[in-house]
Design a protein around this nucleic acid. Structure first.
Ligand SMILES: [Mn+2]
Ligand SMILES: [Mn+2]
Ligand SMILES: [Zn+2]
Ligand SMILES: [Zn+2]
Lengths: 140, 140
DNA sequence: ATTCTTATTGAAACTAAGTGCATCTATAAA
DNA sequence: TTTATAGATGCACTTAGTTTCAATAAGAAT
């Protein structure tokens, strides 16, 4: 239930308060395999501290997003998924027909990132993207 | 208020019923500049036929999406935006700091589309993407 | 340890979008 | 033209996420 040290330090440095709610939310995000939803985070936190409110979870996720500490990704089921950036960057191919999710290295999109920076001066946030389409099985 | 012919034919061919609601929803989508929201479509249709229900708008959009006739894109404000594919493919850079939206040709992402098809057999739906990040102004 | 300031929280209202179900109607068959 | 029927609609309800605001408490100052 530890190892949120990296994020905690960042929050503290930037003057954000380290509330018990935030600590528990961070633990929930750092444990597990990533791709956790707000509702799942809430369930984990509420199990230990039932007075927590889910809007606090949403607000904390918003903060972590804004500070660039977690990525938010729509993987096609009805809820957004969160991933700590410290755990590495990658992408996903999501089949809209069968729901299959294939993992994808960071390299596929780095050329795009480079082009956008060079030609538009735009720093694209391409750290955990879901690309929708039809997988090999479903398109034959 | 016409020119929805292309989509109407497709619907009819595929055995979907041409209800007055659908016709009016199609008109709303084809008129204007694209980037229309469900609520805006509803407002336009309701002005002429006040008994329409917004769930019909959502269901029609779902259908048109599934048939590949319109694209659905999150441009960063709280509502999804719809664009008829017949009006051409392009993308957008969305600055999460100032909200600026820059248009982007189709070509920037076609190499990605090709790589995904070649290496994964995945037919990526990259027809109207919004890429988030920080624009030139906001990052200096 | 106590007080102060202000960020953060919980509660509840609110929004965009999706769903279940009874009713209705576009279309094809008679 | 009338009838039959499966698809589409309207309505009420649900869900994920956001916002407002009064109450609370983290962290700094004393
Ligand atoms: Mn992932
Ligand atoms: Mn566009
Ligand atoms: Zn598939
Ligand atoms: Zn900007």
């Amino acid at each position: 239930m530890k190892k949120s040290g990296e994020i905690i330090n960042k929050l503290s440095e930037q003057g954000y308060r380290l509330t018990p709610q935030r600590m528990m939310i961070l633990s929930a995000i750092e444990d597990g395999e990533g791709h956790i939803s707000a509702e799942e985070i809430y369930a984990q936190v509420a199990a230990k501290y039932s007075r927590v409110n889910i809007s606090t979870v949403y607000r904390t996720l918003e903060l972590l997003k804004r500070l660039g500490l977690v990525t938010e990704t729509d993987l096609g089921d009805g809820r957004l998924r969160y991933h700590p950036v410290g755990k590495g960057h990658h992408h996903h191919l999501v089949c809209t027909e069968c729901g299959a999710i294939v993992d994808l290295g960071e390299s596929v999109l780095s050329p795009v990132k480079d082009v956008l920076l060079r030609e538009y001066g735009f720093i694209a946030d391409l750290r955990h993207l879901a690309i929708f389409g039809r997988c090999a099985n479903c398109s034959k």
